[in-house]
């Protein structure tokens, strides 16, 4: 029983990482109908921004929560800017082109970021500083750390905040309008370009938060760390119903749990194979994803 609860917790903690990254995918898709393949790389840039920020800050703050918060904010802002820059330089010029063109541009941007990062940061793995002191808790033999709780709580909190933002604010309404019909939105006096820019900024800031939180938990970062996480988060977003915000979180948690239970009780050798097999089955039964509507829900 203890082992089962521990595996459950392991799965939730792995799944909340996928959920955090999946939120960004689903947001951009909801507005632009674009699979932003560079999203995983922005997540990597977030981790590196945090790494260099903490090196710069080292000794100037007392460490602990305030330092962690400053680093988080710096890295989220840096990535929001990168996200807007990617949109402005790569996606906006081809926005009116076919979807295939957009997709290929997205893959190109992803490769460009990965290779530039290898040149500038170096390709060897770096140790992410432990800015937040780790504390261990035990509950009926189940061990967990404050960082695992933090990741899970942040994913759920951000999901709630995003949903509120999109449902309740004027900007959120504008976003939904752009998602629904960009031309009609423009006629209504909405600045479509700045709304799309904002979508990218938000999505990229989320990815940066994900990068930092994950690196606190698993303190080894490298320029290709976004590759596998990006793919898994993308799968999580599709599983939950791409375009749906609660769906992204649900998809991430299910993927994390599936991987963990397959490795823990089945065969760790076939972890990814079996986990993805389960996903294929789910998508065969419900192609629009768990929380997706037949007509894909707009953000």
């Amino acid at each position: 029983m203890t082992a089962f609860l521990q595996q459950l917790l392991n799965g939730l903690s792995l799944g909340s990482i996928y959920a955090l990254v999946a939120l960004g995918y689903t947001m951009v898709y909801g507005v632009l109908r674009l699979i932003n393949f560079a999203h995983g790389d922005v997540y990597m840039l977030g981790a590196f921004a945090g790494y260099y920020a903490s090196k710069l800050l080292h000794g100037r703050l007392n460490g602990g929560l305030p330092e962690a918060a400053v680093i988080l904010v710096v890295s989220m802002i840096a990535c929001a800017l990168v996200g807007m820059l990617i949109e402005r330089l790569a996606y906006r010029p081809v926005r009116r082109a076919s979807r295939l063109t957009l997709l290929i541009v997205a893959i190109g941007v992803s490769l460009l970021i990965e290779n530039l990062a290898q040149i500038f940061f170096g390709a060897d793995p770096k140790f992410f500083p432990q800015i937040l002191p780790e504390r261990m808790f035990e509950w009926r033999g189940v061990l967990f750390t404050n960082q695992q709780i933090l990741v899970l709580a942040t994913a759920v909190l951000l999901m709630a905040a995003l949903t509120l933002f999109i449902r309740r604010t004027r900007t959120g309404k504008a976003m939904r309008a752009v998602a629904h019909n960009p031309d009609a939105a423009r006629l209504m006096g909405i600045n479509v370009n700045s709304i799309i820019s904002l979508t990218f900024a938000l999505g990229s800031a989320l990815a940066a938060a994900g990068g930092i939180l994950v690196s606190l938990n698993q303190p080894s970062i490298d320029p290709l760390m976004g590759l596998m996480t990006g793919i898994k988060a993308f799968v999580a977003a599709v599983l939950g119903g791409i375009g749906s915000i609660p769906g992204a979180v649900l998809g991430g948690l299910i993927l994390g749990l599936a991987e963990t239970f397959v490795a823990g009780y089945g065969s760790s050798t076939y972890r990814d194979a079996i986990a993805f097999f389960i996903l294929i089955i789910i998508l065969l039964c419900k192609p629009e994803g768990l929380l997706g509507k037949g007509q894909v829900e707009k953000v």
């Binding site: 082992a3 392991n10 799965g11 792995l14 698993q218 991987e259 397959v262 490795a263 823990g264 760790s268």
Partner: peptide
């Protein structure tokens, strides 16, 4: 390339 080994380690712990 994996970063999360909790599932395997929990299984080993048992």
């Amino acid at each position: 390339g994996d970063k999360d080994f909790n599932a395997q380690l929990t299984a080993l712990k048992g």
